[in-house]
C-alpha cells in the first residue's frame, strides 16, 4: 500500500505537487492521469525518493519512506521509465539482473530469475538475453525494462509513461500483458500517463491531476459517469464517453436467453466490442459466448444502448 499524506513539492516557490493525499490499495493498479506539467511524474518519483517531498510524507506499507536509506528503498521498488532507460553497455540479461546484482544474490539465483522473467514476458532467453539494447525492437526493450523492474520481486511497481515510446498496435498488446502480469503477481502498480484511454483500460482507480492537485480519484466507471471537474471531462473527451463506458463492461453481462445468427461474440468481449460488431456486420442481435465458448445467449442493440448511459 502506498499512502501520500499531505505531500507537496515546491521548486522555486512554485508548488509542482500541492498538498496531495492519496491511498493506493495493495494489489491494484492506480493510474495517475494529467497533462504535462501537472506534477504526476514528480508525485511518482516521491515514492522511491528520486524526488524528496518539501512537505508531507509518503508511507509504504505503513513505513515512512524517508526513514529508509534511498538506495535500499529503491531496490525494493520496481521502476519503469518512458524510453526504457536500459543500460546501453549491458546485454538484456544483464540489464534484467541489475537489482538482484545490487542486492548480492548468488549468481545461480540471478541467472534463474532472469530466465524466469524473460519467459514470463515472452522474451526468448537464449535469443534476446545476449542482445544489447540497441539490437532490440521497441516492444522488446519495453519488456526488458519491465523485467528489470520486476527482477527482485518488488511489491510495488512504479511506471512512468511505460508505453509512451511504443507504436499504437504494440502499445495495446503491452497494456493487455501488463494487466495480466499484474493480476498474476498481485503487484501494487502506480502508473503515470497522459492518456486517459490507457488509464481507463488499466486502472482500478484513476487519479486525475491538474496543477499539482488531484481533481478526482475514483474508479474508471465513476470518472466517466460523473467527472468531478470540467478538466476531467475535457480529458475524457465528451464524444467518446459512451464508448469508454461501454468498453469497461463485459458484453456477457447483457446476455439474455435466445439465439441469433452470425459469428459468436467471445466471452471476454466488452460492450463496446459488441456494439462495434453490430455496426460493422449490420446485425441488431448477437450471440454471446459463455465461459465454455459456446453461445450462452444473445445481446441486443437496445440493451447495449441503454447500458452506455450511466445511472
Amino acid at each position: 500500500m502506498i499512502r501520500f499524506e499531505s505531500v507537496s513539492k515546491v521548486y522555486d516557490g512554485i508548488a509542482v505537487v500541492d498538498d496531495v493525499s492519496l491511498t493506493l490499495e495493495r494489489g491494484t493498479i492506480t493510474a495517475v492521469v494529467g497533462t504535462s506539467g501537472s506534477g504526476k511524474s514528480t508525485l511518482l518519483r516521491m515514492v522511491n525518493r528520486l524526488v524528496e517531498p518539501t512537505a508531507g510524507r509518503v508511507l509504504l506499507d505503513g513505513t515512512d519512506t524517508a526513514s529508509v536509506p534511498a538506495a535500499d528503498l529503491r531496490r525494493r521498488i520496481g521502476y519503469v521509465i518512458q524510453d526504457h532507460g536500459l543500460f546501453p553497455h549491458w546485454t538484456a540479461a544483464r540489464n534484467i539482473a541489475t537489482v538482484p546484482g545490487l542486492l548480492g544474490w548468488p549468481r545461480a539465483a540471478i541467472d534463474a530469475r532472469v530466465r524466469e522473467l524473460m519467459l514470463m514476458l515472452q522474451l526468448d532467453p537464449d535469443v534476446i538475453g545476449p542482445r544489447f539494447p540497441h539490437e532490440l525492437s521497441g516492444g522488446q526493450a519495453q519488456r526488458v525494462g519491465v523485467a528489470r523492474a520486476l527482477a527482485a520481486r518488488p511489491e510495488v511497481l512504479l511506471m512512468d509513461e511505460p508505453f509512451g515510446a511504443l507504436d499504437p498496435v504494440i502499445r495495446q498488446q503491452a497494456q493487455t500483458d501488463l494487466r495480466k502480469l499484474q493480476q498474476q503477481l498481485g503487484t501494487t502498480v502506480m502508473l503515470v500517463t497522459h492518456d486517459m484511454a490507457e488509464a481507463i483500460r488499466l486502472g482500478d482507480r484513476i487519479a486525475v491531476m491538474r496543477a499539482g492537485r488531484i481533481d478526482q480519484f475514483a474508479p474508471p466507471a465513476e470518472i466517466i459517469a460523473a467527472p468531478a471537474t470540467g478538466f476531467v471531462a475535457d480529458l475524457l473527451g465528451e464524444g467518446d464517453r459512451a464508448f469508454r463506458y461501454l468498453s469497461l463492461q463485459p458484453a456477457a453481462r447483457l446476455a439474455r436467453p435466445g439465439a441469433a445468427d452470425g459469428p459468436v461474440l467471445p466471452a471476454d468481449a466488452t460492450m463496446a466490442d459488441a456494439l462495434a460488431e453490430m455496426i460493422w456486420s449490420g446485425r441488431d442481435r448477437l450471440p454471446v459466448a459463455g465461459p465454455d465458448g459456446h453461445p450462452a445467449g444473445v445481446c441486443t442493440r437496445d440493451d447495449l444502448i441503454r447500458a452506455g448511459r450511466p445511472g
Binding site: L50, G85, L158
Partner: peptide, 11 residues
C-alpha cells in the same frame, strides 16, 4: 533516462 534508471534501480 539511463542516469535516471541507475538511480531508480537503487545504485
Amino acid at each position: 533516462s539511463v542516469a535516471l534508471a541507475a538511480d531508480g534501480m537503487g545504485m
